[in-house]
């Protein structure tokens, strides 16, 4: 059986909120190393890969592999009932029909309990290759959100160009064009504001802003976001969580002209 308890429901609420508009039905694959999810959007443009390691929970117990087939719209409805600071416990039997969720507000001695019906989801597990990216950019997640929102007003796509001088986000649309350039920036006193660019070779790729703004819903999960780019391969956008857990999005580039 599965039993996994989070100190604050916040993490799970934000993670589900960040992916629910991209994918509808997906399996939460549980085993002794944690809870993983991999799902692709219907148009095959974006892939979500989430790993919540066992260490993120206390306690965590899962004796065998359990796939929880969940409709994310339904899960969102249930999670709305959880306070951000409630503890959240997920429980399921070995061959479950339901996922049991318990929210506890210890200060108020209030316990709420929900059973969410599960579904059978036949999902192909795709292999995500280890990629040596040409450019890896670490930047504040709030800054990335601001850039995608601002450029969305100009165009439906953005070109991300990484060079030794910095990273440039630019968009051209009917009303004109705009760009934002960030240079490497490592303030000693404010590590959350760090912009770091690791570059093995310059790279420029174009992406749909609709998807990128969607990914930015994960912003509350992490102060920093990592963008990994290589020519003609999917962009990886990573929100790192404590203890090696993560929420990653892969986005297909727009190729050709």
């Amino acid at each position: 059986m599965l039993e996994a308890r989070l100190d604050t429901a916040n993490l799970f609420k934000s993670a589900v909120d960040a992916i629910k508009d991209l994918v509808q039905d997906c399996n939460f694959d549980c085993n002794d190393s944690g809870i993983a999810l991999q799902a692709m959007d219907n148009s095959h443009v974006a892939l979500v890969s989430m790993m919540l390691k066992a260490e993120a929970f206390s306690p965590f117990r899962c004796d065998r592999n359990i796939a929880l087939g969940v409709n994310l719209t339904s899960l969102t409805k249930v999670l709305r009932a959880a306070g951000r600071d409630d503890t959240l416990t997920l429980k399921a039997e070995d061959a479950p029909d339901v996922l049991n969720l318990v929210f506890e507000a210890t200060a108020q001695d209030r316990i709420s309990e929900y059973d969410l019906k599960l579904m059978d989801i036949d999902q192909e597990h795709l292999g995500i290759p280890d990629t040596e990216y040409a450019a890896t950019i670490s930047m504040p997640s709030a800054e990335f959100k601001r850039i995608t929102t601002d450029l969305m007003a100009m165009s439906e796509s953005v070109t991300i160009e990484a060079t030794k001088d910095g990273v440039k986000f630019s968009s051209t649309g009917d009303i004109g064009n705009g760009s934002i350039t960030l240079r490497q920036h490592t303030p000693v006193d404010k590590p959350n504001e760090t912009v770091e660019i690791e570059l093995s070779e310059p790279v420029a790729l174009t992406f749909s802003l609709k998807y990128l703004t969607n990914f930015c819903k994960a912003q509350p999960l992490s102060n920093q976001v990592k963008l990994c780019l290589s020519a003609e391969v999917p962009l990886m956008v990573e929100y790192g969580l404590e203890g090696g857990s993560y929420l990653r999005f892969y986005l297909a580039p727009k190729i050709g002209d």
């Binding site: 290759p129 892969y250 050709g256």
Partner: peptide, 14 residues
């Protein structure tokens, strides 16, 4: 017009 890489095929073959 630019086309978008099909991620399904990408991850299936890689």
């Amino acid at each position: 017009a630019p086309f978008q890489l099909d991620l399904y095929n990408y991850f299936l073959t890689s």
